[in-house]
Amino acid sequence: MSKVKIITTEDGSHSLYHEELKETYHSFHGALQESKHVFIEKGIRFWRNKEGLPDFLKVFEVGMGTGLNALLTAQLAKENNISIEYTTLEPFPLENELISQLNYPDQSDDPKLKEIFKRIHQVAWEEPIELYPYFQLTKHRLKLEDYKIGKEQFDVLFFDAFAPNKQAELWELSALKKCYSLLKRGGVFTTYSAKGQLKRDLKSLGFEVETLPGPPGKKEMVRGVKQ
């Protein structure tokens, strides 16, 4: 595995720097605030408000990485008493020694998050695991191109791949088309990127595309709703 080192972002939360790609896993302006803004607020909370605050949803994530998005989703489920089934892809899992040093659970007053974060990374791959009554996690050690689409469709899709200039294959039309197929009608695709080509491709697939204000330090982000 290429060398990956821990960095501290401007909001005090950790991220990782991939030395081979010369790319960080999150915004250096703040990993925690970026994930909360892009995926929790503009993804899950938006979908729930749009759908009348249902107490159950299914989330699909492209790029588990550090597990921060999964942790924040588990926290949201716990605090709001809603049930979430969370499916995530990560073809190149991080080493346990590195994961154990990440400070995400310390950013919250909830002492249980440390154990939840630990379990997110330690539970078995390729099978659904109930981490606690409100949160079920299924991790697949797969690339998006290798994930088999079944009958199950998702309400919200977190697209958290490396940037288009670092991981171009995941931003191609064929990959985005697969994301479209994974979502239910009315489902939400959310990502930190706001590239013009991304917006054009999403529109061509049938998404209603919005360019939204980004998290602190980033001007814009993109959300799509499947029509």
Rank of each mutant, 00 (worst) to 15 (best):
Y104K: 02
H140F: 04
L176H: 07
G214W: 04
V156G: 00
L137K: 01
G187E: 01
I6W: 02
Y86L: 12
F92T: 08
L131C: 01
S27H: 00
H29F: 13
P105Y: 15
H26P: 15
G206F: 04
L173V: 10
N81M: 05
A161D: 10
V62H: 01
L176S: 02
D146L: 10
P213G: 04
K195P: 05
F56E: 02
H121I: 07
H29M: 14
E169K: 07
W171V: 02
Q197L: 12
D146V: 14
L205I: 10
Q197T: 12
K139T: 01
F56Q: 12
F60N: 00
E10V: 07
K112F: 15
E20F: 11
L198K: 06
D146K: 13
L32V: 13
Q122P: 13
M221R: 01
D155E: 10
D55P: 11
R141I: 06
Q227T: 15
L202T: 00
S181R: 14
A161W: 02
Q33L: 09
K3V: 13
P216S: 10
G217I: 01
T191W: 10
T73V: 15
L16P: 04
D11H: 01
L71K: 00
E169D: 15
L98N: 02
P133H: 12
F56P: 13
H140I: 09
K78A: 10
S193C: 09
P128Y: 14
P128A: 05
P216M: 09
D160A: 07
F154T: 00
L21D: 01
G67W: 02
